[in-house]
Design a protein around this nucleic acid. Sequence first.
DNA 1: CACCGGACTTTTGTCTACAGCAGGCAGTTC
DNA 2: GAACTGCCTGCTGTAGACAAAAGTCCGGTG
Lengths: 250, 250
Amino acid sequence: MTGEDELSAPVARAPSIVGPPSLVQLAADALRRMIVGGDLLCGQRVVENRLTHELGISRPPLREALRVLEREGLVRQVPRKGVIVTPLTLHDIYEICTLRAEFEGLAVRLGVPVRDPERLRRCRTALHRMAEAAGAADQSAYLECSFEFHVSVVGLSGHQRLEEAYRSLQLQLMLSMALNRRAREDETLTEDVARHERLLALVEEGEPARVLAELARHGDRTFLDGIETKVDGHTEEALEWLRRQREEQR
Amino acid sequence: MTGEDELSAPVARAPSIVGPPSLVQLAADALRRMIVGGDLLCGQRVVENRLTHELGISRPPLREALRVLEREGLVRQVPRKGVIVTPLTLHDIYEICTLRAEFEGLAVRLGVPVRDPERLRRCRTALHRMAEAAGAADQSAYLECSFEFHVSVVGLSGHQRLEEAYRSLQLQLMLSMALNRRAREDETLTEDVARHERLLALVEEGEPARVLAELARHGDRTFLDGIETKVDGHTEEALEWLRRQREEQR
DNA sequence: CACCGGACTTTTGTCTACAGCAGGCAGTTC
DNA sequence: GAACTGCCTGCTGTAGACAAAAGTCCGGTG
């Protein structure tokens, strides 16, 4: 049962080795990049005609792409008024971060004595690219590789749904990061890489508890700085959580 | 910055008297019902033209609805081949159930000393409807109300993303239930209601640990019967999990 | 008798066009 | 001068149509 019979193996994900990618997928990818890249800001209205002209496609595929992004939580569609880039409240940040931590924990518990070496290789590749981007001080590339690394770590569990949910969450988090985007120094980047390397080393070691402990200390809390000045929609739970995070940060 | 009430007040949900029913939403709902209701079986091809005639709508809104359902995991869209109702493997069932349990646990831990009485009221309403459906031996209504009850329990956490992810998972589980749909006796139904009532009572009591314990015993494992004869795509993790479930069932 | 090639049919992917609603602007009235 | 009302522009929602690709069936051939 160790082999992968490609007929009934949902694990061996080979989406588009061959085949023209549909315009919907392309448009969705492009929109994602525009949103997390900061070209479209939170709360900003997204006019369909504008985008069709910009992307060079027609409205139907664009609308389908927007539906996809809506399900991913990146945009909100108001029935007769159009779509806007999801405006994040403090409560949203709270939701994203709590779920994200939970997902990472579950992934480690499910997958840390790693069964499939291929999964580990994916993590290592992502980490390697991270280091490269850090060396080149390419911030956007670093962000993208970091994204891929975290997703691949969750992918260690071999849990597609978990990975997908995590990817969606991570995207929303990057959406919030676009708010306080500031240049990080190179040393911060290489330090980040070191942290991730430590994490992966623990993963390879195969002790779930130690990975979980590292994860608890690992969390990127940089985006917390000055959050309350930029978002509103405070809730009791969210404020409580924010206080706790601030304490742990020291 | 004073205008744009829709942006700065996402909490105050505008109670639009007339809800403009978008055809996309309507079509998505209809398709969901058709799928979990068993009108469309797993793996079956979904032809767009067929459905447009059946639903009386045009292809664009239908396609958008299909994109939504794809993101929800109910259908799979293969680029130049069309869409099929997601065929579930044993590994899928394993994924759904593990995530589902995790979500319920997280929701209870986050929300069980319930803060907002309104959330509890939602649970009670759903439970009441469940009892009614059980009394009327209306199996499909019972299933739907049970669905709503579980979602509302997760909603106790006040965690929209968690609730949404849970709803999606629960839908997929109902998709798998459509495989071995067999008439349950009324006593099973009322027994089910009793179990759910016990759960809600513990929730109102406000002790997270006790709710979690009840949840661990609560799981519907009926859909496990004869699973391995109906689905393929076994993985190591899934088989292990299935063994464990079987043991706990006794 | 089995296998291969080509034309046909079906189905998807995309585009253009039209109808209906929302918000802004100007004219009018109190 | 201010507020209300009617028009008007622009956008979204939906429909129908066209082109390309995949699947299928039939006939020919080894």
